[in-house]
Design a protein around this nucleic acid. Structure first.
Lengths: 180, 180
DNA sequence: CGAAGTTCACTTGTGTACGAGTGAGTTGAT
DNA sequence: ATCAACTCACTCGTACACAAGTGAACTTCG
């Protein structure tokens, strides 16, 4: 790795330059004298897996937002989908199933309750539990949204062919696996 | 985290639902027993690329946190690394280079200033600009951290062999590409 | 020159994310 | 029966992440 340099990277653009900045410029002018932009390299941010994961996520979230618009965020979508699939679940359990910790699922459920997509009732069997269940409203909503999920996936994977998509899926599964 | 309990799968008690099994979550086993869960399938959250991306990101962030501990967050690290690589940059420009919008980079820079890792000065050439630059303190810090980045990447990619890691890198680059 | 358009930084508001800590409720082992 | 261990939900604090809007500063072009 690090054998290649992404020429695609942006130009550093001298900040103190009186030449001013035309937003987008053919790059590769300027600093040539000293060294390349990668003076103290060996470490190239753009090559880091973490950076790529974040960018990929960004793109997906952007696509999701474009498709879903109507005020449902990704985590909320996951929660509704899970409830639709499995039926009533305790709050923490639901959170675990969609990889949200108890602090985060709390906020997600709050917003879903507020939107009248789910109910949150104390369990009779175990006074600690809060059972989350879809409302009719929520059930209708998620049913309408599920088809969109397909499209979102398609769009996200658009730059890849089928084979590549499958591979990506497999590799991501591997590294997403067990968090510990 | 919260390493696997001896109980293995959590499998909580009945959510106060007589006659309704709590859908014994199949960790990764597609239950063929046909009880529920399979009914409205076709949509499996765990198979969605977005979910995988989020999980993968979670794992990376977790590893990052374990390695870096000392109060530097991923975005802050990226910012310092970029400044170290390219020298002083305007705030927005820096943000663009590490894929943070202007609202987000503001917060990141604020925290870096507060930690005395960077300075933020108005440009003389362009009164709109805020030039962000490393302090000596910040330069030392990032220099000490860069080697860790290597390790973080290694750990994140640990479940993959070299070939797979390369492939993942390539495929992620493709879908992370242009946000629009 | 001056209007139009752009970019900059900043703010507000919302939504994930997670560590750490709390207290009530439950269970298992003695 | 009881206590230790555990789980549940909750709160607090911090850190991204982005949409949308503001006003000042700069550029371009007519």
């Amino acid at each position: 790795m690090t054998t290649e340099q992404p020429v695609t990277t942006e130009q550093p653009e001298q900040p103190g330059q009186p030449g001013k900045r035309p937003a987008k410029r053919p790059a590769k002018k300027r600093q040539q004298a000293g060294t390349k932009a990668t003076v103290k390299d060996g470490y190239v941010l753009e090559d880091q897996i973490g950076f790529l994961l974040r960018k990929a996520n960004q793109r997906h979230r952007s696509i999701f937002g474009n498709q879903v618009k109507n005020n449902i965020a990704p985590a909320q979508f996951s929660a509704l989908a899970k409830l639709h699939q499995l039926g009533p679940l305790s709050q923490n359990h639901l959170g675990r199933l969609i990889a949200l910790d108890s602090a985060t699922i709390k906020g997600v459920v709050n917003r879903l309750v507020q939107a009248d997509y789910v109910t949150s009732e104390r369990s009779e069997d175990d006074a600690r539990l809060r059972i989350i269940d879809l409302t009719t409203h929520g059930r209708i909503r998620i049913k309408g949204l599920l088809p969109l999920a397909e499209e979102i996936t398609q769009l996200t994977l658009a730059p890849l062919n089928d084979q590549e998509a499958k591979t990506l899926h497999r590799l991501l599964s591997k590294i997403a696996g067990s968090l510990d």
